[in-house]
């Protein structure tokens, strides 16, 4: 796969370059044992030295990850829970500062999602406007796309719900509206974090189609998912993160085979690439509690 990438390098234009990236979270108030009030005071008085001593814990979420993504690629990010996938995605989007190393991007990568900008007390209609503006669309663009967004979400299929406050929506309806707003904009570099998991089946189908469409317009797509099937369907390259480290980087089939062996998920059965045949996004049951399965702690000495 190394030569595969070398070829790519010659012919293609890089859009995202991660250069030995480290990401560290600092968590306040985990000081156990001693009275945490004094620990906090201690922390304030002697900033740096006291960090470890007084309740601030560092979580090294991503360790020395390097990769180059090229235009036209769709890259899947896989790994067990807590392996740093979403964190890495946020750093690529420039939303989380990196501790060491650099991430270079072409244009502004955007995370697919507007949940945080929406307000439950406002009507769906106003949320469409607010969400669109929050993503950086102009007022005219929002107005143009408005009908399209509402139709896509299917909120109005069962009556005029778009003029009701969002708090009155069922959780599925709200999720559909959120996805519809988020997917309304074209992006250079698109980052998707398990967005496919929302809504009922017919909506899932529509969202998959929409994501394929976005892919066509976008330079590069990153997809975080625990659903190996949707990774197979959408991605041609996969990065496998484990405990914050880049375990593998290569074509989807190769990496997924190893990953499935690692998680003990359908390991023995060598799975030939299930090409589109049945497009219905049957929600392949996500292997629950993956990290607890055997290989994780026992057999595999991770290079650290």
């Amino acid at each position: 796969m190394a030569e595969n990438d070398k070829n790519a390098q010659n012919t293609q234009i890089p859009t995202v370059i991660a250069d030995t990236v480290d990401i560290v979270y600092r968590v306040n108030g985990t000081g156990g044992g001693r009275g945490s009030a004094t620990a906090a005071l201690n922390r304030i008085l002697r900033r740096k030295q006291a960090e470890q001593a007084a309740g601030v814990r560092k979580v090294h979420a991503v360790k020395k990850v390097s990769f180059v993504a090229y235009r036209g690629e769709a890259i899947g990010l896989i790994g067990t829970n807590g392996s740093g996938k979403s964190t890495l995605l946020k750093a690529v989007a420039g939303l989380l500062p990196v501790e060491n190393g650099r991430i270079y991007t072409d244009g502004q990568p955007s995370l697919l999602g507007v949940n945080a900008a929406l307000m439950n007390d406002l009507t769906g209609e106003r949320n469409v406007h607010l969400g669109g503006l929050a993503m950086g669309m102009s007022r005219e663009q929002v107005r143009e796309r408005y009908q399209e967004i509402v139709d896509f979400s299917g909120i109005n299929e069962k009556g005029d719900f778009i003029t009701l406050p969002m708090r009155t929506y069922s959780s599925g309806m709200a999720a559909r509206l959120r996805f519809s707003i988020a997917a309304a904009k074209d992006h250079d570099v698109l980052l998707i974090d398990e967005a496919l998991a929302t809504g009922d089946r017919s909506f899932q189908k529509r969202s998959e189609a929409r994501i394929r469409e976005l892919r066509k317009h976008a330079g590069t797509v990153f997809l975080v998912s625990h659903n190996n099937k949707s990774i197979r369907d959408t991605c041609d390259r996969v990065l496998w993160l484990e405990r914050g480290e880049l375990r593998m980087d290569g074509p989807t089939d190769e990496v997924l085979k190893e990953y499935e062996a690692f998680t003990g998920d359908k390991a023995p059965k060598p799975k030939p690439k299930p090409k589109p045949a049945a497009k219905a996004p049957t929600p392949t049951p996500r292997p629950p509690n993956q990290p607890q399965t055997e290989p994780n702690d026992t057999k595999v000495p991770l290079p650290s």
């Binding site: 250069d19 030995t20 390097s66 180059v68 750093a91 990196v98 270079y104």
Partner: peptide
């Protein structure tokens, strides 16, 4: 060894690659 092209000289190659294609630092 598994991950991509510019692993040899840590950083410098990638930085050069980024500069060559006019990429900007994310989150700067």
């Amino acid at each position: 060894t598994t991950s991509a092209p510019a692993k040899t000289g840590t950083g410098t190659d990638l930085r050069a690659l980024a500069a060559r294609h006019g990429l900007s630092v994310s989150g700067a």
